[in-house]
Structure formats: C-alpha cells, structure tokens
C-alpha cells in the first residue's frame, strides 16, 4: 500500500473528518486503490449498530433521524448518518436536501452526516452504501443511521444491510396500503406512524397492525407500531427503546449472527462480481476476445463454447 493510502488509514482511525470525507468520495468514485484502503479498515469494523430508515417521500425520515441522533447523543453514543437521495436518470445530477432537517446535530463533533446520490448504480447502490457504512464504522461511530426513500428494489436492498429497519409512514395511508404490502412489510422491524399530530394516525396504526397480524414472520419478533411527531420529538424516545429491544432480541436469538453472516455473504459476492466485471471490461476488446467474436460470426463456434474458452483465459 502507498504511503498516501497508509496515511489516510491512520488519519481516519485517528478521527480526522477530512480524511473520512475524502475516502467516502474515493469509494463512491471507485478510485483505483480504494479497495486496499477499505481492506485495511475492515479489521476496525463490526462494532456499530446499523439502522435503516425508509419510507415514502416527505414522511419525515430526516426529521426523525435528527431526533433519534439527539437521543443517542444524550446517551453518550456517537452517530454516523448516511442520507441517500435519488439521482436523475437523465442528467446524473442530484439535489441532496436531507441536511436541512438535521441542523440540530450538524455541529456536534460526535455526529457525521454524509449525503449520497443514488447515481443509478445498477445493483451497486447497496455496495456503495455498504462502503460508506464501513468507513463510518471504522471511524468509530456507535450508531449508523441510513436514510433512503422507500420507493423501489434498490432501497429494499440498502436497508437489507441494516440490523434494524424502521419504516416511516404517515397518517392517511389510503391506497398506499397496497404499496406497503408489496415488500415493505417484510423488511420492517419497527413501524413508525409519523406526523401523528395530524388526523388519522390511530387509524393508520390500526391498519398497519392488522396487516402485520396477517403476515406473521418467523423471526420471533413482532414489529411494534409507534406513533411519533418527529417535529416536536413526541414518541421518539419510544423508537429508541424499540431499537434497543430489537438489538437485544437479535443477540438473544442468534439472529444477529445470521444477519452478520448474510451481510458478509452479500459483500463477498458483490466484491467478486465487481472484480470479474472489471476483468471482463478491461479486456473486452482484446485480441483473444475479438478472435472469438470472429469465430462466432464465421459460424465456427457457438457463443456458449466461446464464452467457456474465454473464461479459461481469464482464470489464467
């Protein structure tokens, strides 16, 4: 490893915020050499409690994250926040506005907030988020909160890497109840009905409760439904309690070990796929490759056989 990389590692372990921020950018941009640095940091990870926060746009996720962070800071815990927002598929640009709601904790040196554009990573978003989580963990953050807009499969994948997942809904679900059924119900460990200062919170909580009754999971954990008003902070301490109980449950049942193993499995798989893809990309216009293409076109080889031959050369 280069001196510059070693220096970055020791600065991060020493708590240097600029080094942390820089490495996060390097990971997001897939800068050459970043894998070695992440590998070096890996031995310093595994202590953080990773919490996913997801739900529809505007449901109050960032406001809740801000208030949860205040609670954890009162308890003496340090907090890392990763806020993921959609990237425009047309321009590649993104407007990352979650920080607006996190002003209360933004100057606290025990808190580190990072905004991230989803950047249309094909299936790679979970990996990038995982890299940032790893860096926060090595940086020594006790609690890592990952906010994503609950809209699609990639968000489900991201929160899938969390130990505890909070689903934030708002009163008056109405037709949304169908959307919730599809996918979200299974991944939620804690359901929050936020904006309970508005009408209809009780009814929404009842509907969610009935849906959870109809879809029991086999983890032995019945997700609680908690009404909050994140703006005023009402109910937020109960979310913190529920998170602690969930973590205890994971520990006692051995489910935490299963989750850790599933994370490690996904990570290994993603790294391997990444590696193979870059091998293929690096040589996709090599002479061997083009010769094989010619043979297929000339009818001398079928593409399946050609792929087998090519894979043998990659192994070498």
């Amino acid at each position: 490893m280069s001196d510059a990389s070693m220096d970055l590692v020791s600065r991060i372990l020493g708590g240097d915020r600029r080094a942390v921020a820089r490495l996060m950018s390097m990971a997001e941009n897939d800068v050459p050499g970043v894998k070695k640095i992440l590998a070096e940091l890996h031995t310093h990870t595994g202590r953080a409690h990773i919490i996913g926060v997801t739900g529809p746009p505007g449901s109050g996720k960032s406001t809740l994250v801000d208030k949860l962070t205040l609670e954890y800071r009162r308890m003496g815990k340090t907090v890392g926040i990763i806020a993921v927002d959609p990237t425009s598929p047309f321009t590649g640009g993104a407007l990352l506005g979650d920080r607006i709601r996190m002003n209360e904790v933004a100057l606290d040196r025990g808190v580190f907030i990072r905004s991230m554009g989803a950047r249309g990573h094909l299936g790679g978003l979970a990996k990038k988020t995982g890299d940032l989580v790893k860096i926060m963990d090595a940086f020594g953050k006790d609690m890592i909160l990952v906010e994503t807009v609950g809209a699609g499969q990639s968000e489900v994948e991201i929160v899938g890497t969390a130990y505890s997942t909070i689903i934030v809904e708002v009163p008056g679900l109405g037709d949304d109840i169908q959307a919730i059924k599809a996918g979200i119900l299974e991944i939620g460990d804690i359901f929050v009905v936020n904006k309970s200062d508005l009408d209809g919170a009780d009814e929404t909580a009842r509907e969610l409760d009935a849906m959870l009754d109809m879809n029991p999971n086999d983890s032995g954990w019945r997700p609680p439904i908690i009404q909050t008003s994140a703006l005023s902070g009402d109910g937020v301490s109960r979310v913190v309690e529920a998170l602690t109980e969930h973590m205890n449950h994971l520990n006692e049942t051995g489910n935490l070990h299963k989750l850790v193993r599933a994370r490690a499995r996904d990570e290994l798989r993603n790294i391997i796929i990444d590696h193979i893809r870059s091998l293929v990309d690096a040589r996709h216009d090599s002479e061997e490759f083009e010769t094989l293409v010619d043979s297929i076109v000339a009818g001398e080889l079928d593409p399946y056989r050609a792929a087998e031959i090519y894979l043998k050369t990659l192994e070498g």
């Binding site: 321009t91 407007l95 990072r114």
Partner: peptide, 29 residues
C-alpha cells in the same frame, strides 16, 4: 440548474452560520 447540469448539490437552505456551512462542506467533501 447545477443538478440539471449533472452535479450533486447538497442544499442547506436558509439561515446557515459559517460554522454550519464549513462543517457540512468538510463532511460532504
């Protein structure tokens, strides 16, 4: 406009102190 030009824009909004701005700039690199 910057977003539409393909940039990632961290938007902080109103009433920011210099301390808030610089801390955010550092964390967001």
């Amino acid at each position: 406009a910057l977003r539409d030009a393909g940039m990632e824009v961290i938007y902080m909004g109103l009433h920011q102190t210099p301390e808030h701005i610089v801390e955010a700039a550092i964390q967001e690199d």
